Every structure is written in structure tokens, then in C-alpha cells.
Amino acid sequence: MEVRTIKVFTTVDNINLHTQVVDMSMTYGQQFGPTYLDGADVTKIKPHNSHEGKTFYVLPNDDTLRVEAFEYYHTTDPSFLGRYMSALNHTKKWKYPQVNGLTSIKWADNNCYLATALLTLQQIELKFNPPALQDAYYRARAGEAANFCALILAYCNKTVGELGDVRETMSYLFQHANLDSCKRVLNVVCKTCGQQQTTLKGVEAVMYMGTLSYEQFKKGVQIPCTCGKQATKYLVQQESPFVMMSAPPAQYELKHGTFTCASEYTGNYQCGHYKHITSKETLYCIDGALLTKSSEYKGPITDVFYKENSYTTTIK
């Protein structure tokens, strides 16, 4: 009895394709271990004539594949690729409408935090270190965002349907971005203890939790000093293409032309909904596939993004 075979390709990165001759009487799992086709788990399936010449994702289970996976995804987590594939199996079914010149995501599976993050990423200057993220990001900007969303979920250790947080998501993504040249110098002034300067680099240099107003941050924000008295913390120097200011959701007025974009969060910790506000020729609110415009805006804002380049204080 002759062994019926077909020729397929296996890959971990969709760049390096490895030619395989597979036995049609055995499952993919018996031949390769966990195997995925377009995100779908085909591990328990036997090869079919229609699979001839198709590319299958496999887990990096030998040295060659491990090197290829690390170079593309910059992670050695053995569960990463499987999590990416199972997320992709959902995100490829989502709709990605162009809204006001940006790629958004039609609401499904509690994905409003991903839509808000995706919209924000198209408006701030950011370059990702893992080629996987950078490639998928370019495709997302062009309207094909399924891979990018699935990668975000995998890097953030999230599953489809789980509630997510924009600030946490951005923080994970910033860790995989090139923020080497970003720098922030802060000064804390206390009447009792004097003053202390701190220099922050990388992710810490672009994120701040405690106030939404970048102007206020430049002037000074009140913080408790270690001595128990009130101290003032203010920005001395900022070198970065953008800054992200966050605070627990509270009524906040966004003035046209003073910011790049913002995240609105309605609801409580267990259950809520994100919308995205962007400042173009007027203010726009993007909620999944829905767009509304207004000249002014007041609502429960939790993150505001500002364009920056270089700032030095005039406070002496």
C-alpha cells in the first residue's frame, strides 16, 4: 500500500517557510505537534488534498525554529505562539472599519479597549522592536488589523473576551517599542525636605499616572512627601515624541487643539466601556464603527496623549 502524501510549508514567522512532505494517514499533531492554519487549530486533523502548498504555523520545537521565533517575536515564552494563534482565530472574524481616516474595530468580545489602543497607536510616533509587531502594525494602518490585535493580546497575556485596560495595554506595548531616546527629568520640591531631581528613561519617561493635564504637570502637581507634608512635583525636561497622561476616570474637559487623542471610560472596574476622542479640525468621538463630532467635550476621561518633541522648564 502506497503512502499518500502532500507537500506543505511549516513556519513560526510566515517569513521562513520549511518544506514538509506530510503523510495523509496521520494527523498534523502526530507529525508536527500543535499546528495552526489561519489561526485555526488543526492539530487533530489529517492532511487533505486542499492543504497542498498551504502554510501551517507550528510551535518552535527545534533550534532553527526557536531562533526564527525569537528573532521575529522577541520572546522565548513557549506558550506565546499558541496564544497568538488562538487569538487570531477570533480577531480574523472582527470587522476593521476605516473611521475618520483611522483603522478602528467594530465592537465584539469586549474589544473596546483594543480599538482605543489601536486608534491611539496610529496617532503617536512609535516604532516597535519585534519585527512581528512592526509588520502587523503597518498592515493594521492599511486596514488589516487582525494579526496586530492578536499579537497585542498575546504580548499582554490576554484572551479574547476578557476586559482590558488601555493604560495597561499601552504599557505592555511600550515595553516592546523603541523608547531608548526618551528621557524625563522631574523635580520634587518640599518646604521641609528641599528639592530632589529624578531622571527617568524609556517607558517611565512617557507615562504618568495622577493627572490628565500635561500643562498642569509642567506647572506642578501636589504629591505627598515622605515627611508627610505636601510637596510639588513638576516637569523639568521632556525628550520624547509623545507623552501619555493618565488618571482614574473623572469628568474632564478636553479643549480642541490642546491634545492629540484621549480615552474615555464609562462604567466601573468590573464592567465598563471605552471610547476614543481625537482632536482634528474639530473633536471626534470614535466608538467602534461609530463616529460623532463636537466642538467641545466633557466626560469621564482616563488617558490623554500629547505630541511632544523637546521641553525644558522655565521655572527657576
Results as ranks from 00 to 15, higher is better:
residue 294 S to T: 12
residue 104 S to R: 00
residue 38 D to R: 11
residue 252 Y to S: 00
residue 136 A to H: 11
residue 168 E to I: 08
residue 271 C to F: 13
residue 202 G to I: 04
residue 303 D to T: 12
residue 11 T to V: 03
residue 203 V to Y: 09
residue 63 D to R: 15
residue 229 K to T: 10
residue 138 Y to N: 09
residue 126 L to Q: 08
residue 94 W to A: 00
residue 294 S to F: 13
residue 65 L to M: 07
residue 55 T to S: 09
residue 245 M to S: 04
residue 296 E to C: 12
residue 190 C to L: 00
residue 20 Q to T: 12
residue 130 P to V: 11
residue 161 G to K: 07
residue 248 P to Y: 00
residue 251 Q to K: 12
residue 36 Y to S: 02
residue 194 G to I: 03
residue 166 V to W: 05
residue 256 H to M: 08
residue 201 K to M: 13
residue 209 M to F: 12
residue 98 Q to F: 09
residue 295 S to G: 10
residue 54 K to I: 09
residue 234 Y to E: 04
residue 209 M to T: 06
residue 14 N to I: 00
residue 21 V to A: 09
residue 160 V to D: 00
residue 71 E to P: 01
residue 216 Q to R: 04
residue 306 Y to G: 05
residue 302 T to H: 03
residue 280 K to P: 05
residue 108 A to R: 15
residue 169 T to R: 02
residue 312 T to V: 14
residue 185 V to I: 10
residue 243 V to D: 08
residue 67 V to H: 12
residue 311 Y to A: 12
residue 70 F to N: 08
residue 283 L to I: 15
residue 194 G to V: 01
residue 84 Y to M: 04
residue 262 A to T: 02
residue 298 K to F: 11
residue 128 F to Y: 07
residue 12 V to F: 15
residue 75 T to Y: 00
residue 261 C to L: 06
residue 116 T to E: 10
residue 298 K to C: 13
residue 15 I to D: 09
residue 212 L to V: 12
residue 50 S to M: 12
residue 282 T to H: 12
residue 281 E to H: 06
residue 202 G to Y: 02
residue 13 D to P: 01
residue 115 A to G: 02
residue 158 K to C: 04
residue 165 D to N: 03
residue 199 T to R: 13
residue 147 N to K: 12
residue 131 P to V: 01
residue 134 Q to V: 09
residue 312 T to Q: 13
residue 57 Y to F: 08
residue 278 T to H: 05
residue 159 T to N: 14
residue 282 T to E: 09
residue 180 D to H: 10
residue 240 S to T: 06
residue 102 L to G: 00
residue 110 N to C: 03
residue 129 N to A: 08
residue 226 T to E: 13
residue 64 T to P: 09
residue 214 Y to S: 07
residue 104 S to Y: 00
residue 262 A to R: 08
residue 102 L to S: 05
residue 266 T to M: 03
residue 288 G to D: 06
residue 48 H to F: 10
residue 98 Q to H: 06
residue 211 T to M: 14
residue 65 L to K: 09
residue 109 D to L: 00
residue 171 S to D: 09
residue 172 Y to H: 13
residue 263 S to I: 15
residue 99 V to T: 12
residue 126 L to S: 02
residue 125 E to N: 08
residue 8 V to P: 02
residue 161 G to E: 01
residue 303 D to S: 09
residue 230 Q to P: 10
residue 57 Y to E: 01
residue 100 N to V: 08
residue 115 A to D: 05
residue 141 R to L: 12
residue 195 Q to A: 15
residue 235 L to G: 02
residue 108 A to E: 14
residue 107 W to M: 11
residue 23 D to Y: 10
residue 197 Q to G: 09
residue 95 K to F: 14
residue 80 F to E: 03
residue 183 K to V: 12
residue 110 N to V: 02
residue 77 D to R: 03
residue 142 A to L: 10
residue 215 E to V: 05
residue 189 V to G: 03
residue 23 D to I: 13
residue 212 L to M: 05
residue 234 Y to H: 06
residue 275 K to V: 07
residue 237 Q to M: 07
residue 308 E to C: 12
residue 164 G to Q: 01
residue 296 E to R: 13
residue 276 H to C: 14
residue 38 D to W: 09
residue 139 R to W: 14
residue 201 K to D: 06
residue 54 K to S: 10
residue 254 L to D: 01
residue 68 E to V: 09
residue 128 F to M: 03
residue 269 Y to H: 11
residue 76 T to P: 08
residue 146 A to Q: 07
residue 221 V to N: 06
residue 29 G to F: 10
residue 199 T to W: 13
residue 39 G to M: 06
residue 239 E to I: 13
residue 210 G to L: 07
residue 246 S to F: 02
residue 93 K to H: 14
residue 292 T to S: 12
residue 186 L to D: 10
residue 137 Y to N: 03
residue 214 Y to T: 04
residue 125 E to G: 08
residue 167 R to D: 06
residue 242 F to K: 08
residue 247 A to E: 04
residue 315 I to N: 13
residue 214 Y to H: 08
residue 258 T to M: 14
residue 282 T to P: 04
residue 126 L to Y: 01
residue 116 T to R: 15
residue 115 A to W: 02
residue 170 M to H: 00
residue 65 L to C: 12
residue 81 L to Q: 03
residue 150 A to Q: 02
residue 203 V to P: 11
residue 101 G to M: 02
residue 185 V to S: 05
residue 314 T to S: 13
residue 275 K to P: 05
